[in-house]
Design a binder for these strands. Structure first.
Length: 235
DNA sequence: ACGCCCTCCTGTTGGC
DNA sequence: TGCCAACAGGAGGGCG
C-alpha cells in the first residue's frame, strides 16, 4: 500500500468491479485498484463515520456516506493502484485460468501435471497452474476426488485429473454459496461470516472420523502448510 | 523450469 | 499468571 495510493484513487468514479484469482479489481477512471486480502484481510461496507478499529488500514469513502473499509491484522494483503491494463500487471499477467473457465478442464490439468514431481496438493495451490484454490479447498477437493495429497502430480491418471477438476469446481461452488469458510474472523462485505466450515470433510478435522468411512482423519505438513486427508478414502 | 525453503506480520492457543 | 513456541485463510522471491 504505497503512500501515493490516496492521491491516485481519491475523487474518482468507480466504473466497474471485477475479480481475477484472489484479486478484487476496482476499476476507476484513471486506472484500477487491486485488492488482495491475504490471510487475514477483509473489506467491509461500513458507515464512513464508524470509528476505526485496530488494523483498519484504508477507507474508500463513497458519496453515499458509506466506506469500503480495509482491515488486515497480519498485513499480508495488498492494495495496489495501476494505471495500465490490470491483466498485464506483473502480479496478474501470468496467473493460470480460473477454475470455472472452460480452459481449466481435465485435459489442461492432466497436461500441466506431466513431469511435475511436486505433490498434487501443492500443485493445486500454485497460482501459475490453477488459481483460487487455497489451503482449505486444496485438501477438500482432494478428499472429494479421493486422491492422496502427497501423490506426485505426474502420477495422476487422466481419469483422476478429470475427477479433480470436478472436485475443485464443486467445492469452490459450494463454499461460495455458503458465503465462504470462516475459521476465526473472516466476514463478507456485509459483515456476515461464511458457514462452509460446517461442511468441511477433512480440513481441521485431524483425529475425527472421516465423514465417509469413519477412519480418523490425518494431518501432515506439505510446503509449510497443513494438509488434511483420509488415509482410507484417498489413494 | 522446477522445487525447496524462507519471508512478510499479528494474534491466538496450548504447554509448561 | 506469565512466558514461549507453534500455528493460522497467501504467495512472492531467492537459491541450487
Amino acid at each position: 500500500m504505497a503512500a501515493t495510493l490516496p492521491a491516485n484513487v481519491a475523487g474518482q468514479r468507480i466504473t466497474g468491479i471485477g475479480r481475477r484469482a484472489k484479486y478484487l479489481l476496482i476499476a476507476l477512471e484513471s486506472g484500477t485498484l487491486l485488492v488482495h486480502l491475504g490471510m487475514s484481510g477483509n473489506l467491509r461496507v461500513v458507515e464512513a463515520r464508524e470509528p476505526r478499529r485496530t488494523h483498519d488500514h484504508f477507507d474508500v469513502v463513497l458519496d453515499s456516506g458509506k466506506a469500503l473499509r480495509f482491515n488486515d491484522s497480519r498485513r499480508f494483503g495488498s492494495l495496489i493502484f495501476t494505471r495500465a491494463d490490470p491483466a498485464r500487471h506483473p502480479l496478474l499477467a501470468r496467473l493460470a485460468p480460473e477454475p470455472f473457465d472452460a480452459a481449466f478442464d481435465a485435459q489442461y490439468l492432466w497436461r500441466v501435471t506431466r513431469k511435475r514431481r511436486v505433490a498434487i496438493k501443492q500443485l493445486l495451490m500454485n497460482s501459475h497452474l490453477v488459481v483460487g484454490v487455497g489451503n482449505i479447498y486444496a485438501s477438500e477437493a482432494l478428499f472429494r476426488a479421493r486422491i492422496a495429497p502427497g501423490r506426485r502430480a505426474a502420477m495422476l491418471s487422466r481419469v483422476e485429473a478429470a475427477h479433480l477438476v470436478r472436485a475443485v469446481r464443486a467445492v469452490l461452488a459450494q463454499a461460495i454459496r455458503a458465503g465462504g469458510t470462516t475459521l476465526r474472523d473472516y466476514v463478507g462485505a456485509d459483515g456476515v461470516p461464511g458457514y462452509f466450515r460446517q461442511r468441511l470433510y477433512v480440513y481441521e478435522r485431524a483425529g475425527k472420523p472421516c465423514r465417509r468411512c469413519g477412519t480418523p482423519v490425518r494431518s501432515r505438513t506439505q510446503g509449510q502448510r497443513s494438509t488434511y486427508y483420509c488415509p482410507a478414502c484417498q489413494k
